[in-house]
Amino acid sequence: MESVRYEAPRELSAAIELLDSVEGARVLAGGTDLLIQLRAALIQPSLLVDLKWIPELTAVSLDEEGLSLGAAVSCAELREHKQIERLFPGLYESAELIGSEQIQGRASVGGNLCNASPAADTVPALLATGARCVVAGPGGTRTLPCERFATGPGETILGRGELLVSIQIPKPAPGTADCYLRLIPRTEMDIAVVGAAVSVTLDASGSCTDARVAQGAVGPTASLVPDAAAALVGGVPDVGRLEAAARAAAGASRPIDDKRGTVRYRRKVTGVLTRRAAEIAIERARQRTR
């Protein structure tokens, strides 16, 4: 454990200044990954910049445009916004699945993105909603789709001095609903072996007009599966479309063998969870079109 400083700036610009000017500075949001990495000496930052006193990073707002979620908002706080559960049940349940109550009291959706674990629970759910990331840095602010944020395990597009400010999720079209499912051996406290998120939009006739399918823990980053989404779109989702989506998802997965699962198992379960998540999302969307 090497010496490290701590700062808790009150303004975004101050945080950017610190991150830009101090070699080896790291941001601290919920800390549930950072503290473990720190203790295991996997990282040796010179400065920790606590983001939780910066208004832009702790704000939650929901309006006609959609949801704006500050990057440091804890999962527990997110869960207190019942409107988020109504609009984005998949995202909501992904935040509810991360670790324990204690972990959710600290861990943020933004941190889940920035940690860039392939198995992050909220990331496939974000991808399914079409969420965008707002990134600020010395050069100003940019936004990009969440699916472009992580570039590999633990790797993101963030440059020096840059930080994730918020996540913007467009208000879903009428008849839209999402779902996130993951497979873990226990009922709680495990890292996802497979994660699958599906968002569908149904028209009044029950026909699927739009869909997004995402998967986690089966590739270097969480990713969208356009072929699986395409399989769902263009008619009333039936068993054939669901199976096609499941096959596409399983086929698109690029899992590895590790202590949590095998390639064979993960690929199979990717299909199973994609089908089940789609079924739930479709049922939720149907209730909304009624």
Binding site: R186, T187, M189, D190, K259
Partner: peptide, 16 residues
């Protein structure tokens, strides 16, 4: 040892 912690050495939790 690949799982020297309670994260991946999975003892039953209350909801199990």
């Amino acid at each position: 040892l690949e799982n020297p912690g309670f994260l991946d050495y999975r003892i039953p939790v209350a909801s199990d």
